[in-house]
């Protein structure tokens, strides 16, 4: 239907032009505005390309220039000394983001299940839905301050650990996961639930065996996008993980660091050596974030095809 209608519209447009019922001024205005819309696309595309090109060219020379060392050595202590190694930050980003994911994703999906399978249109569910929107708009730096006051301060210097950073990132991810998962659960046809109930399954069994598997492509890709977002965050970590330069796999003990923190810290320095480290870390971080995004796309495409 829509295709036919579009073709009709196209034909009508060309017909109108043939009859030259449109004055030159109106036609020029139309062309100019279309060109301006296109310019907007070009502007953002150009900006993105420029950022990516700078990061890739500057970052690549650092990462490849000190190839294995970049991934295997700890971070140089003095900013003005050129030194290889970003392992501590790579490990930090991975373990902190992983911990945050383990906390936020199950809770977020469970919250979405409540909203869509139990709460529906009850007043409390509506309030929660509204609050999820509010929470998604809270700036990430406020999450960092909150975890600092709530979690780090009572523990003193022992509070500056990877786990605190993970908590802050989890607060950031939770509303994103809830919102995107609920959206996906809502798309599951009611027929499937009814069929499951008719076979005698309880709500919990229906949700776990029918609804969630059906919605899984969308739910998983939503979660991966939240992970990609969290992996790139800096602000919540400033208050929570301290400043380490050595690799720390343990999120429960000792200060930590992350790629984003290394970029932030080194970008502020005026030494070229430090700035180069920042570019290298930026390339590594972008590669990680894009990996997650691409994985999200592929996974959701694949899962939805097998169904």
């Amino acid at each position: 239907m829509a295709v036919v209608a579009e073709q009709l519209v196209d034909r009508r447009e060309s017909l109108a032009e043939e009859l030259s019922g449109i004055s030159g001024r109106r036609r020029t205005k139309n062309t100019v505005m279309t060109a301006l819309m296109f310019m907007a696309v070009v502007f953002v595309g150009f900006a993105l390309l420029l950022v990516l090109a700078t990061v890739i060219t500057k970052g690549w020379s650092i990462v490849s220039g000190s190839f294995p060392a970049w991934f295997t050595k700890d971070i140089q202590l003095r900013p003005r000394v050129a030194g290889p190694g970003m392992k501590a930050a790579i490990v930090g980003t991975c373990v902190i983001t992983f911990t945050a994911t383990v906390i936020a994703v199950p809770l977020g999906i469970a919250g979405a299940v409540y909203l869509n399978e139990y709460g529906r249109n009850r007043p409390f569910a509506r309030v929660l839905r509204f609050l999820a929107n509010v929470m998604a708009g809270v700036p990430s730096i406020v999450m960092g301050l909150f975890i600092y006051v709530f979690w780090v301060v009572p523990r003193g210097t022992n509070g500056l650990i990877g786990f605190s950073g993970a908590l802050a990132l989890a607060c950031l991810m939770l509303p994103i996961v809830v919102r995107s998962s609920e959206e996906m659960l809502r798309l599951v046809p009611q027929n499937l639930r009814d069929a499951s109930y008719a076979l005698g399954a309880s709500t919990s069994r229906t949700t776990l065996r029918v609804v969630l598997p059906t919605a899984s492509p969308g739910v998983i890709s939503g979660c991966l996008l939240a992970v990609a977002r969290a992996a790139g965050e800096t602000a919540p970590l400033i208050f929570t993980i301290g400043a380490a330069k050595a690799t720390n796999w343990n999120v429960l003990k000792g200060t930590n660091t992350s790629l984003s923190m290394q970029i932030y810290g080194n970008a502020k320095e005026s030494f070229v050596t430090a700035q180069e480290r920042a570019w290298g870390a930026a390339l590594t971080l972008i590669a990680l974030a894009f990996l997650f995004t691409v994985a999200a796309r592929l996974l959701s495409a694949r899962l939805s095809r097998t169904r």
Partner: peptide, 28 residues
Amino acid sequence: ILDRVFKGSTFGAGALILVVLVLIAWTI
């Protein structure tokens, strides 16, 4: 019982949003 436990835990997860927001406002 299982069904009730499941419902309760999803409810708890949902309510966590409210709890966190209140805690943010209160602590800061």
